[in-house]
Amino acid sequence: MTTIYDFTVRDVADSEIPLRNYRGKVLLIVNTASRCGFTPQYAGLQALHREMSKRGLVVLGFPCNQFGAQEPGEGSEIADFCQLAYDVSFPLFAKISVNGPKAHPLFQWLKSQAPGLFGTKAIKWNFTKFIVDREGEVVSRHAPNSEPQQLRQRIMSLL
């Protein structure tokens, strides 16, 4: 059976990161963008990360340019924006595709484990969120308009 720990991703510095490095943590995985109406959610994501990281939460941000070309930058430019504008300290990864034939295998798996409304697998927009438990299983998927603080109780129940 596949879990989150079977995947490897590239971080914003282009280093390979096996997700097994996060074994035993609760993960909040989000496809992000710097020029989106939902971009201010970085502040809420950072607040959750800051508040709950000592208890075992890790927020993982995956920039994506598939929705309205709202993430035109690359690696260090994205990281600099996130740090300067929102004081982001949670891990950021290399820009990926989340839908279509070039969708990253991680997001293919996430979508298969937690389909969207009416069973759709496609991600609707930036800032779709997936919560993964300490065993590496996807427990829920949340729409872009779900504010990070709305997920607080669900995450707390897993910590």
Rank of each mutant, 00 (worst) to 15 (best):
M1Q: 14
T2A: 14
T3D: 03
T3C: 05
T3A: 04
T3Y: 06
I4C: 03
Y5Q: 11
D6E: 13
F7H: 05
T8W: 06
V9H: 01
V9R: 01
R10A: 13
D11H: 02
D11I: 05
A13L: 13
A13C: 10
S15N: 15
E16W: 06
I17G: 00
P18C: 12
P18D: 15
Y22M: 10
Y22G: 06
K25A: 06
K25S: 08
L27Y: 09
L28S: 02
I29R: 00
I29F: 00
S34Q: 11
C36L: 06
C36E: 03
C36K: 04
C36P: 03
F38P: 04
P40W: 08
Y42H: 07
A43E: 14
A43M: 11
A43I: 11
A43Q: 15
G44R: 05
G44D: 08
Q46V: 12
L48A: 07
E51Y: 11
S53G: 09
K54P: 13
G56H: 07
L57C: 04
L57M: 05
V58N: 10
V58L: 09
V59M: 02
L60S: 04
G61N: 03
F62I: 11
F62N: 08
P63Q: 06
C64V: 09
G68T: 10
G68E: 04
G68M: 08
P72I: 14
S76T: 14
A79P: 01
A79K: 12
F81C: 04
C82Q: 04
C82H: 05
L84Q: 15
A85V: 15
A85L: 12
V88C: 01
S89R: 14
F90V: 10
F90R: 04
L92F: 02
L92M: 14
F93E: 03
A94D: 10
A94C: 09
A94F: 02
K95P: 01
I96W: 03
I96C: 08
S97F: 12
S97V: 10
S97D: 15
S97E: 15
V98N: 00
N99A: 01
G100D: 05
P101F: 07
P101Y: 06
K102F: 10
K102W: 08
K102G: 11
A103N: 06
A103Y: 03
H104W: 02
P105A: 03
P105E: 07
F107N: 01
W109V: 02
W109E: 03
L110K: 01
K111Y: 00
A114N: 05
L117V: 14
G119I: 00
A122E: 10
I123Y: 06
K124N: 07
K124G: 02
W125Q: 03
N126I: 11
F127Q: 05
K129F: 00
F130R: 01
I131M: 08
V132I: 13
D133R: 09
D133E: 07
R134S: 08
E135C: 13
G136K: 10
V138W: 02
V139A: 07
V139F: 08
R141A: 00
A143I: 12
N145D: 15
S146Q: 14
E147A: 15
P148F: 07
P148A: 07
P148Q: 09
Q150S: 14
Q150K: 14
R152G: 04
R152C: 03
R154Q: 15
I155V: 13
M156D: 13
L158A: 05
L158R: 08
